[in-house]
């Protein structure tokens, strides 16, 4: 938490700069919204999605958002959908991200532009080149992509596959599966989610091992961007002193040159680093909140009297120790 306090100013300004105009236009059943730094509340028609918001639908819930005329997002029941900003890989600039921690979301994009958000699940990333597709995130961490119209590129663990109309692919714990043809209306998403939940129950220790791998991957980048942010902040302070000294000497042209050529680019890079370490830390929080909690409840309630199986307990403890010691420093009370 100490890490975040020092960069909170950047994050407030970032929130204002990058907000998308996605508005809730239809709600059925239980639909809650958790603004980034506030408590859970009931979502309302007319709510505009802000950076950091998470929409959580109940078992009977359904929610539709309009991004712009012709583009919409439909969120099924028992789904966790978050609007974030960060870099989906280290060589990319921060971008808008729609993250599905659990459940199913149908995207319909009328006009494709370079500003379209990246779509992610706990184990995969998808670039939009198409217009209508479903993304499902299962309780076991696996994902399913199905394209109805257009084209979508799915990436996981260094592999990628391009899907066109009426094609789908599953993303397993160890990477992408083979793409398959989809007959229109022939995918039973509820059945797929039930099967994912059953897989989670059949091998919770294996599931926890996969979550630990995801945690380690995200943590590596959270720490990398934190160090970068820290180094850049120190370098900016030195530059600010140099600029001030040049101005004091009456060399305003030299000062301006330093501002334009070094200070401002460094500032941009520093803002991106702050966004990114926070993005990766919150991705780990999401892993805990929806996947680990799911595994924990399943195992705990099915072994209430006899106690946890040792293999699950070992991995759960490994996850929580890593979380407590290396992730918590990136979090604040508002995240809870």
């Amino acid at each position: 938490m100490k890490y975040l306090i020092s960069s909170i100013f950047f994050l407030f300004s970032i929130n204002l700069i990058f907000s998308l105009n996605a508005e809730i236009v239809y709600i059925e059943g239980t639909v809650d919204i958790r603004p980034g730094s506030s408590s859970l509340r009931e979502a309302q028609i007319g709510d505009v999605l802000q950076l950091g918001d998470t929409i959580i639908t109940g078992m009977d819930g359904y929610c539709e958002l309009i991004l712009q005329p012709g583009s919409s997002i439909e969120i099924d029941g028992d789904t966790v959908f978050a609007y974030q900003r960060g870099s989906t890989s280290v060589d990319k600039e921060p971008e808008n991200i729609f993250h599905i921690a659990l459940g199913r979301v149908l995207y319909k994009f009328g006009i494709i532009s370079s500003d379209e958000p990246a779509i992610t699940t706990p184990s995969s990333t998808c670039g939009i080149r198409g217009t209508e597709f479903s993304v499902v995130a299962g309780a076991d961490g696996q994902s399913l992509y199905v394209v109805t119209q257009g084209e979508v590129a799915v990436e996981s663990q260094g592999q990628s596959v391009s899907l066109t109309q009426q094609e789908g692919v599953e993303v397993f714990r160890d990477g992408l599966g083979a793409k398959f043809a989809v007959l229109q209306g022939n995918i039973d998403y509820s059945l797929w989610r039930d099967q994912a939940a059953n897989r989670a129950l059949e091998d919770p220790a294996g599931g926890m091992a996969s979550v630990i791998t995801l945690l380690e991957e995200n943590l590596k980048w959270a720490e990398y961007f934190w160090n970068l942010w820290n180094d850049n902040t120190a370098a900016m302070q030195v530059l600010a002193q140099d600029i001030s000294a040049l101005r004091d000497q009456g060399n305003s042209d030299g000062a301006q040159e330093l501002v334009d050529q070094q200070f401002l680019p460094l500032k941009q890079q520093t803002i991106a680093a702050a966004l990114n370490y926070r993005y990766y830390a919150l991705s780990i929080l999401s892993l805990r909140r929806y996947m680990v909690t799911d595994f924990y409840i399943s195992v705990r309630t099915s072994h209430w009297l006899q106690g946890f199986p040792q293999d699950f307990l070992d991995r759960y403890n490994e996850f929580t120790n890593l979380y407590e010691n290396r992730v918590v420093p990136f979090l604040v009370e508002a995240d809870i």
């Binding site: 959580i56 078992m59 099915s302 929580t320």
Partner: peptide, 19 residues
């Protein structure tokens, strides 16, 4: 629930179903 925080109705339902 013990050390875990349940945000979604689905997880609450899963907990009570299990108990």
């Amino acid at each position: 629930f013990e050390g875990e925080i349940l945000l979604s109705q689905g997880l609450v339902s899963q907990l009570w179903t299990g108990l």
